[in-house]
Write a protein that binds this DNA or RNA. Structure first.
Lengths: 164, 164
DNA sequence: GGAGAGTATTTCGACGTCGAAAAGTTTGAC
DNA sequence: GTCAAACTTTTCGACGTCGAAATACTCTCC
């Protein structure tokens, strides 16, 4: 059974004869599946009136256990964003009531962002829906195929992280 | 051998007991590998002074065989962008000399964008470097493992293309 | 042919992002 | 005790993107 990537690769193979069909087929499918998950995830979050960047920010606060606090700088570093962007995100989340901002008592340079009960609640709804989206896709494979796929992907991830 | 996703999943498993570890491990690795390829690709393109959105636009023009032409509307649809964005992209690419714009003689509403020789040349350099990045990653697996991985990924892609 | 509907592109205002500079706070050396 | 260097966050200007309105052109039908 052929998928759209088979067609795509066959088309480019005519133009770029030195292209490695296996490599291209795998890389294109990795990207296609990720884009699919991105789209489905954005759709279920939109049902809660949430953008993905809002969810990711709440997620990083939730990742720190109770009381779900972090400084803007910490959040920016972990999310791979500039400090400027984090200021904007926290402005928006504070306006929507999902986050509180206050100054650190010991070091008044620092700001401490805290997840509000409303923020925690919408995060819970979002994380549940996102898990469901991922399950709907991956459950297309049997458990043994899932394990097989996971092992192959782990080998690739290890290669990107520096072999040990 | 454990990778960073194993740690990530183990961490969240404590907080979300109903989470499916296999599903999460696969989904997280798909996304991590795609992000890795994105970063490496952006880096090699930057060596040619090219942003990925510029390359993608040239790529879509190159995809149409010689004389490498398309209308803004066609490009916007295939790239999943708004017409407004395509106007901006073509403005920039025309300024850099990678694209020419002219009016269609038969239908003067239409604009025809054409890849210049300079645009074709930089696309060739970019596509070669991107293929190299993908090969460097995927060649971590043997040919038989690559084939196994490809088959599993194709099954997932087919699942995303079957139901709508 | 002329009016109105339809199509293709551009313009406009808003958003989220970034790098760099600015503002406010702490630390350390003297 | 003072002040310069370091640290944290915010502000500012620019970019790429989008939706919606505006512009320019074509087609249809009477």
């Amino acid at each position: 059974m052929k998928d759209s990537i088979d067609d795509h690769v066959a088309l480019w193979a005519r133009e770029l004869p030195e292209m490695d069909l296996r490599v291209e087929g795998i890389a294109a499918r990795l990207q296609k599946l990720t884009r699919y998950l991105d789209r489905r995830r954005d759709a279920v979050l939109a049902a809660h009136g949430l953008q993905y960047w809002e969810f990711k920010t709440l997620h990083m606060l939730r990742r720190n256990g109770a009381p779900y606090q972090a400084t803007p700088g910490e959040l920016a570093t972990r999310l791979g964003l500039s400090p400027a962007t984090m200021t904007n995100r926290l402005d928006a989340l504070e306006r929507r009531g999902y986050v509180d901002r206050g100054h650190d008592r010991d070091d008044r340079r620092k700001v401490v962002a805290t997840l509000t009960p409303a923020g925690l609640k919408i995060w819970q709804q979002g994380i549940g829906d996102i898990s469901q989206v991922e399950e709907n896709l991956i459950h297309q494979l049997s458990h043994t195929d899932q394990d097989h796929l996971l092992v192959l992907l782990r080998r690739l991830v290890l290669a990107t992280e520096g072999d040990h």
